[in-house]
Design a protein around this nucleic acid. Structure first.
Lengths: 206, 206
DNA sequence: CTAGCATTGGACCGAATGGTCCACTGCGCC
DNA sequence: GGCGCAGTGGACCATTCGGTCCAATGCTAG
């Protein structure tokens, strides 16, 4: 049981310092990626110093983990809000289309996926954080699909979890290919395919 | 026009040395990833030395590019052979299922996708190599789909290129999620979804 | 006021690693 | 048989960067 020996701040001042450090590190991770995160850089940007960092974190990996956690929470908040509003197939389609439109403006890769691929051979604790983040995202989709099914738009034999997995795979694959190709088309096509997959389980009216 | 100033070997001996270097580097890239490739390590594994490397390559990036090119060619050879044999929807499904079965044994990420994501912010020449590799892969799929369409299994309004993009996105997303989750399920689900997408364009018999 | 702990600054260290350099070797050619 | 270039060995250099350390500085309770 390797418990987290990272000591929590014990004063307001300490809390503020630590928070600022994590936030700056998270921005750096987003901007340049995990393995390009430089301690000196983060510390100077945060107006902090080595001793502060090693006071609150075991080592670099500890800071990275905190930054990844922070960033994932940020992204998940947003995703939760977006998908919680979905209660019909039409809403699902429009939300996903809006998602693609927004993505088309930067084509920077999935905010969670990028972290995940940088952590595949990385420190296990941080890796687990992104694995959980994906699970959360998938659950948002699954819950939306459950609502859609319960509203009678999907057949009762449609499994929301499986549909969510398929939809998420389409999104990830689409975002990834769009990033590589620097062109939003793959994401849009993948989205169409993914929605088509879900529509295959639509409840036929008769 | 930054031409490639990397000098070609001028003797058999030189050619052999350079080839060996590239091959060893390619293996190292596959095993540990691009940014974990260590010159000293590759050189000793290849029984080579710094002077040889810098004799044939401008710098580390030059070797990486050669290794990536080598590796992509290797993978594409295999993919070409596999998909060239596809001439019907049934064959497409069985080839993709076999693909998933094989992937399930390592879950190590798409051999090209992994390189691509490591190169998104990397040196442009190497990046272009993987972009082209993806384009080739997609064209293998598109050609198979064209044959399937021409054989009358897909409607004439089905666009093989678009279908190929959708299918590739499903594959990439599926492989990626399976790698992250360390579980083959997402790839299998994504494959089902992707094939369903293609089947949506099936020519109806009547 | 002062002991004591949290917090902080920043000099310093050492390993890792890409890149440079020069001397040496092999070999084909005249 | 020695000139000259391709090829080679490997010591050496410079830098980057994570991590260590200790002295200095708030702060707060008694």
């Amino acid at each position: 049981m390797r418990d987290d020996p990272d000591p929590a701040p014990k004063t307001q001042r300490g809390r503020a310092s630590r928070d600022r450090l994590v936030e700056v590190a998270a921005r750096a991770v987003v901007a340049r990626g995990i393995h390009q995160l430089r301690l000196d850089e983060v510390l100077s940007a945060a107006g902090s110093s080595k001793s502060q960092m090693y006071h609150y974190f075991q080592d670099r990996d500890g800071l990275v983990e905190a930054a990844v956690t922070y960033r994932c929470a940020e992204v998940l908040d947003r995703l939760a809000a977006v998908f919680e509003s979905v209660g019909s197939l039409g809403e699902l389609a429009s939300v996903l289309t809006a998602f693609a439109d927004e993505y088309a403006e930067h084509l920077a890769g999935c905010p969670i996926g990028t972290l995940a691929s940088e952590l595949t051979s990385g420190p296990e604790p941080a890796r687990r954080v992104v694995v959980d983040a994906f699970a959360s995202w998938e659950s948002f989709l699954a819950r939306a699909l459950t609502r859609i099914r319960d509203a009678g738009e999907l057949r009762s034999d449609a499994d929301p979890s499986t549909l969510a997995t398929g939809l998420l795979a389409a999104l990830e694959g689409g975002m990834f290919l769009s990033q590589v190709r620097r062109d939003a088309t793959p994401l849009r096509v993948a989205l169409t395919a993914g929605l088509g997959y879900v529509h295959g389980f639509r409840q036929e009216l008769d």
